[in-house]
Design a protein around this nucleic acid. Structure first.
Lengths: 141, 141
DNA sequence: TTTGATTGTCACTAAAATGGTGACAAATGG
DNA sequence: CCATTTGTCACCATTTTAGTGACAATCAAA
């Protein structure tokens, strides 16, 4: 399955922002914690900003969460960083002359929607605060 | 999210095999129903065969399911066609000198495992027969 | 105001995944 | 024997992803 690490990095960024004073969390500094390039951090921050999860501006170090970590779900973050949030795709144009081909798309659509919903509900059930609580108390500076 | 259509095509193949006499379901014929190249069908059939979901052999038209459709779950098919079945990946080597970087991986691992489990349980709850029942009776020849 | 640091964004790259395609040996069955 | 089919390989174009350098615009501190 095609997978990327954007959700993981986005959560990492959000935890850093929630756990540290603004002046300390430059994209360079976050890149050091995540172990990647600062541009990757800014790119993902841009998606989180467009989704309204944080505010930041050119020239000003760091960013700020717009909500309390307990009011931000992992589904919020997932949808922010995954423009195409569909888990599975259905093959195009199955043969309408075949009884199976003619009806398979709607059946698969129902099926895949249920799977997608199950995944999203689990993401919705976990908040950013929940993730932070899994880190040792020392990580919350 | 990067997504492929292998699960959709694999389910389509399995439905065709379950619904038609063996002599009629050549890879060429199935390719016609799915609307793709016969090699794509054979490639996915190869994965299903390795997973023990069907039997087929060179020179012999078609394939046969090894189990009753009601005993085959969509999770079985998913695992057959997705060698890397992990939904999300975690970024490599976060900085151990950072309190967040040091602990984020295990937290994300717990989190992502719960999401993955939710998805797999939903896939496990649906059988191939369930999908076939969603198609019109006419499609079961 | 000047200077240095930072963000936002662009363009480019390499790597990987995916699906389509042609080719062909091996096996099947008439 | 011979036409058909499977299993498999190699190759290709497309897409996605993450890393990187570059740079204008902005900010903040001296």
């Amino acid at each position: 399955m095609m997978i990327n690490s954007r959700l993981a990095v986005a959560i990492h960024i959000m935890v850093l922002l929630a756990s540290n004073p603004r002046e300390t969390v430059s994209s360079e500094w976050m890149a050091g914690s995540v172990n990647t390039n600062p541009v990757v951090i800014r790119r993902i921050m841009g998606m989180l900003r467009k989704a309204g999860l944080l505010t930041s501006s050119a020239g000003k170090t760091g960013a700020e969460l717009t909500k309390d970590p307990s009011d931000i779900t992992l589904l919020d973050i997932f949808k922010a960083v995954e423009p195409k949030d569909e888990l599975f795709s259905i093959h195009e144009k199955p043969n309408p002359a075949c009884p199976v081909g003619r009806n398979i798309q709607s059946a698969l659509d129902l099926t895949f929607t249920r799977v997608q919903t199950a995944m999203e509900e689990e993401l919705r059930s976990q908040s950013l605060q929940d993730v932070m609580n899994m880190l040792s108390p020392k990580s919350i500076q």
